[in-house]
Amino acid sequence: MSLAGKTAVITGSNSGIGLGLAKALAGAGADVVLNSYTDNDEDHALADQIATEFGVTARYIKADLSKGDEARALIETAGACDILVNNAGIQQVAPIEEFPVAKWDAIIAIMLSSAFHTTAMAVPMMRKAGWGRILNISSAHGLRASPYKSAYVAAKHGVVGLTKVVALETAEDPITANAICPGYVLTPLVEAQIPDTMKQYDMDRETAIREVILARQPSKEFATLEQLGGLAVFLCSDHAAQITGTTQSMDGGWTAR
């Protein structure tokens, strides 16, 4: 499943799922472009580390994906985009009547509108190159809902719909578009939340994970960054050339209910 010679642009990739996917694609031989809204030495150091570890070209490009022009400029600045991974996201939890309007606007812009802008720029590049893969990181919440997450659920459902439209528009090209829908993934951010959950519910670590954090995930196990990375590499490979317009769940059975 070599991706040597391909360039992958991964939004929101200086930590968590995005960084894990970048490393997986680099491990398969792809050159990678990391992205977030910051522009720190640490961001560029991550790209240098990936380049050294995997023997690929890696760069970091700052872009505030809440702004459509910057989302488009990200792809233009990258210069090539054989693989596009739309991953950037934020979260806010509140009842809909109390949901901050500014947070609604930001979540929709960063998680849905940015995917429209990056895809609109990347598809012509892919057609010119004669090959392309678009991976939109949705969520189990792209297929199911939870209370108090109106913007997140709306954005993730929108990403699934956008994926299907792009798949149909590129169906006769050697381009695929698919949405990955994880449940709970063990990222550093989730790991940091476990002690607070243990304290809040007066539970040991294992019980807090199984009964609170993973209450809706039937397997009672987190998905891992390595598992998500393996799925991403497969979807980018020639083995998946006829997989397009789909949602690929990795949620321990959550959406089987």
Rank of each mutant, 00 (worst) to 15 (best):
L112Q: 05
I110S: 03
R216E: 15
C81L: 11
A26I: 08
I50W: 05
I213D: 03
L225I: 04
E191L: 10
L46W: 00
I180H: 01
D82W: 11
E226F: 06
A51Q: 10
I137A: 05
G161R: 10
E206N: 03
V9I: 14
E42K: 08
D31S: 15
T11E: 00
I180M: 10
S36M: 02
A80Y: 01
T187H: 00
V153W: 11
T246N: 08
A145P: 00
A88Y: 02
T255V: 14
V32A: 09
G20L: 08
K164C: 06
Y152V: 01
T207K: 08
V233C: 09
E76G: 05
Y184K: 14
A129W: 03
A140H: 01
V185M: 12
T224D: 11
P218S: 02
S114L: 04
A151R: 06
H141C: 03
A71I: 10
K103P: 01
D82G: 15
S66P: 03
G79E: 08
N35H: 00
W131Q: 07
S113P: 03
A167E: 12
P218C: 05
S219W: 13
L168I: 08
G18R: 05
H239T: 12
A51F: 01
A151Q: 09
G16H: 07
S150F: 07
A45F: 04
T11R: 01
L228S: 03
V159G: 00
G158T: 02
G245V: 01
V33P: 00
Q227Y: 02
M121P: 00
G245M: 09
P124F: 04
D69L: 14
S113D: 14
M125F: 14
I17Y: 01
P218D: 07
V166M: 06
A256K: 08
L135Y: 07
P195V: 14
A51L: 09
E206K: 06
A256S: 13
S139L: 05
P188T: 09
S13P: 00
I90D: 07
V32Y: 08
I209G: 00
N136S: 10
D31E: 14
G55L: 03
I137Y: 01
S219A: 14
G5K: 13
L231M: 11
G5R: 14
G132E: 09
A28S: 12
A192W: 04
A145V: 15
S113V: 13
R144G: 13
F116S: 12
G29Q: 11
Y184P: 07
E191H: 03
A240N: 07
M250T: 13
I83Y: 13
A145R: 08
N178S: 12
S249L: 12
Y184D: 10
L34M: 11
Q227W: 02
W131G: 09
E211W: 06
C81R: 02
S138Q: 11
D238T: 13
D202H: 08
